[in-house]
Simulated scan of single mutants.
Amino acid sequence: MVIKLIAHTRISDSFREEAGIYDFELERAAVALTAIRTCYSPLKPTEIIPQEGVKYFGNVASDGAGGTEADRLFRHITRSGHASTLEHITYTFAIEGVSRALLAQLTRHRHLSFSVQSQRYVRMGSGDRIGGFDYVTPPSVSADKKVSEGTFFEESAVDIFSEAMRDAQSAYDRLREAGVPAEDARMVLPNAATCNLVMTGNLRTLLDFYAKRRPGNGAQWEIAELAVSIRDEIVKIDPWLAPYFDTKGAA
């Protein structure tokens, strides 16, 4: 699994100049502050950062919980359930080498946008450019798990799993050789087959996704690993969001 942040919300050059925002780490915080204060302020959206930016970003949080007054405001808004103001901030990820089983789980989450590698148009044959489908092996399928058959034969769980993958590849190849189109031959490919996708989500949705799929919350290992990787990619460019990736999320 490889997860990489490839795009995120950026403020326009004209707004940057008007608002005086030259710290790139404050960009998405400025968007959030503008959205939040627009709901409660007599000021126009374009006036909020120029007139209130110093107050919120330049002063220590009055609630004693750390950060700036902007952080205090974000905490108050999310706790009060007004998290729709965080939907104006979006992140786009390249997600590579995850299983189709994970994809099925991922698409159950709302307000995420997907562009997924197609098994209809990307041929998965051994002789195709892709060289056959790759697959994800669960950690529970390990070489030290043995299955006995009779008295003289013993095989590991990983041997059984690998054999099933080889059989699926063989069946796919033979169906294609028999003239079955790729869109139908793909029916024999397993949940373990990997795929690549591009995914975009707003901050509120991604916080909710993490809250539901984080490690220790009953999620399967692969999607829990994805949740952590997404959190890490976001916090890497927006450290101010680290406290929001908790058990409750933003919603």
Rank of each mutant, 00 (worst) to 15 (best):
1 M>A: 13
1 M>N: 09
2 V>L: 15
4 K>Q: 14
6 I>G: 11
6 I>M: 11
11 I>A: 09
11 I>E: 05
16 R>Q: 12
18 E>C: 04
22 Y>K: 14
26 L>K: 14
27 E>H: 15
29 A>H: 14
29 A>G: 13
31 V>W: 13
31 V>E: 10
33 L>V: 12
34 T>G: 10
38 T>L: 09
40 Y>M: 15
47 E>F: 13
49 I>A: 05
53 G>I: 08
55 K>V: 06
55 K>L: 07
56 Y>S: 01
57 F>D: 05
58 G>L: 08
59 N>R: 15
59 N>I: 13
61 A>H: 09
62 S>F: 09
63 D>P: 11
64 G>A: 07
67 G>D: 13
70 A>W: 02
71 D>C: 10
71 D>N: 13
72 R>C: 03
72 R>A: 10
73 L>F: 01
73 L>I: 01
79 R>V: 10
90 T>E: 12
101 A>P: 01
102 L>A: 00
102 L>Q: 01
104 A>H: 15
109 H>D: 03
111 H>W: 11
114 F>N: 03
117 Q>C: 02
118 S>M: 01
118 S>E: 04
122 V>M: 12
122 V>Q: 07
123 R>G: 02
123 R>I: 11
123 R>Y: 06
123 R>M: 08
126 S>C: 07
127 G>D: 12
129 R>C: 05
130 I>G: 04
131 G>M: 06
132 G>M: 09
135 Y>F: 15
144 D>N: 10
144 D>F: 09
144 D>Y: 03
152 F>K: 14
154 E>K: 14
156 S>P: 04
157 A>V: 06
164 A>S: 05
166 R>M: 02
168 A>C: 06
168 A>H: 03
168 A>W: 03
173 D>N: 07
176 R>K: 12
176 R>W: 04
180 V>Y: 04
183 E>K: 11
185 A>N: 04
186 R>M: 11
189 L>A: 05
191 N>S: 14
192 A>P: 05
196 N>R: 07
198 V>I: 14
198 V>S: 13
201 G>S: 11
208 D>M: 08
208 D>H: 13
213 R>C: 02
216 G>Y: 15
218 G>K: 10
218 G>I: 08
219 A>T: 12
225 E>F: 06
228 V>N: 03
229 S>L: 15
230 I>M: 11
231 R>Y: 05
231 R>L: 08
232 D>V: 00
234 I>W: 01
236 K>D: 06
237 I>S: 00
240 W>R: 00
241 L>A: 01
248 K>Y: 14
